[in-house]
């Protein structure tokens, strides 16, 4: 295998690993966020509007870390700067 093929191989494997590990942590974090929000709504149903709104914004924040990993994987797969 020449250098270009090695770069493709490493890029593909790294893209997979990036998405895998990059989605584990946000998934756990989003689960915790929903859990806490449900507890809060169960305790104070009146505030459910505000809680839901804040939850959506917060979850999008958490999810954006997974999205960054996805963007890096996409760059590696489709716009790799090291492939000639």
């Amino acid at each position: 295998m020449n250098a270009q093929e090695w770069i493709s191989l490493v890029s593909i494997v790294t893209a997979g690993v990036t998405v895998t590990f990059g989605s584990i942590a946000p998934a756990l974090a989003e689960g915790r966020a929903v859990e806490r929000a449900l507890e809060a709504i169960a305790r104070q149903p009146d505030a459910s509007d505000q809680i839901t709104r804040t939850l959506f914004v917060g979850m999008a924040m958490v999810e954006s870390t997974a999205i960054y990993c996805l963007v890096i994987a996409l760059v590696l797969l489709f716009a790799n700067p090291f492939l000639g």
Binding site: I67, Y68, L70
Partner: peptide
């Protein structure tokens, strides 16, 4: 982050 968040979400949906 603002740019990449929107891009990543819509791109992943399309993909």
């Amino acid at each position: 982050a603002l740019a990449l968040r929107l891009f990543g979400n819509m791109m992943s949906a399309e993909l």
